[in-house]
Design a protein around this nucleic acid. Structure first.
Lengths: 195, 195
DNA sequence: TTCGGATCCGGACCGCTGGTCCGGCTGGCA
DNA sequence: TGCCAGCCGGACCAGCGGTCCGGATCCGAA
């Protein structure tokens, strides 16, 4: 039996989430947002912070989970084309585009998420593995056979945080052009490979 | 006029390169190879190491440059299909496959190279930018127009070190299957998109 | 309302990292 | 042989993620 958290614990957790969200959104270089910074900004001790989130990666993943909750919900039980019921290939394309948009809307946080910090690779994160599993299944349904897992990885590689940051940060593709360009390549891969 | 380096400096530089090469090849976790480790293994002081290579990133890039020298040479003036003279699309595919092979042959070093350490993103590294430039030009020649730059980034994203490490490390695709699978997707993108 | 102990707080502390600094040594030319 | 620019090397530094534990706080029981 896990008992509900004490009131001060809940309050502090919320304060940390708010402060961290602000810091990561504001900071120019998310890697330079230290745990001390977060603790100070939240008006909380460092111990509290680590007890609540376990590690830096844990904190960032909690922030990410909050930010992507609407998207997860839309995929699980939302309207087309994100929700179930859409033709697999179309759904894969829609999901990738939605992920792209979320990442663009949370550039710094996403960058922090995917940065290999604490020895935790992107590919070892539960969050990534869930999305990969979903895409793999859809691709299998679409008749991609035993290439579906690799294909899912490659498609997700197209929307990696640092690449997007580089493309948007450096003069060049605007948001619109980026979505169009990546979408075109995704469609190409989805529709050209046997099925 | 820059004078030739003193003999002891040259000797130390070589010792560091050899020791670091060994360490990165052996270590299970390249991120855990510290500069102290390298200095100790090379029988050299830390100051010497940093004077010779500037930074951790500098050392890794020097190692990488040595390892990829044959490949660079083959691309610049080697035989087909890597060298100049090959039909652009075929050459892009050949170059990507060659890069893939080199990365697989130097997994740990490549991982260290692409790890964002010291705030230096993969996309800011001269080494990456040169390859990207080359691929962009080839794609433009192949009639990809203004999408060639983005396309080059996406193709290179398919052979990123941590993805390869994940695919090979975890049970799954063997080397052969990986080359075939990635090659197939690359061909699809190259041959399906106008031109 | 009081009380007692489970739970949580917080900041001093730790080990480790990449990187700097400078007193002393050494290679190489005159 | 003598001289000194250039090089050596390890003590040192600031900053990081993460731990620890004495004391404050919350909350159910009496």
């Amino acid at each position: 039996m896990t008992r509900p958290p004490r009131s001060d614990a809940a309050r502090n957790r919320a304060a940390v989430l708010a402060a961290a969200d602000e810091l990561f959104a504001t900071a120019v270089e998310p890697a330079r947002v230290s745990m001390d910074d977060v603790a100070t900004a939240a008006g909380v001790g460092k111990g509290t912070l680590f007890r609540a989130f376990g590690s830096r990666a844990g904190l960032i993943q909690a922030l990410w989970a909050r930010r992507t909750e609407p998207l997860r919900h839309a995929i699980e039980s939302g309207p087309l084309p994100l929700g179930p019921g859409t033709e697999p290939r179309r759904r894969v394309a829609a999901i990738l585009d939605a992920i792209l948009v979320v990442k663009l809307d949370n550039r710094h946080l996403t960058l922090a998420l995917e940065e290999r910090s604490g020895g935790v690779s992107l590919y070892e994160q539960a969050q990534y593995q869930l999305v990969h599993q979903l895409l793999s299944d859809l691709l299998r349904d679409a008749g991609q056979g035993d290439e579906s897992e690799l294909l899912a990885h490659l498609l997700l590689a197209a929307v990696r945080a640092d690449l997007l940051d580089h493309l948007i940060g450096g003069r060049g593709s605007s948001r619109r052009k980026l979505r169009a360009g990546i979408g075109a390549v995704v469609d190409l891969v989805l529709n050209g490979s046997g099925g």
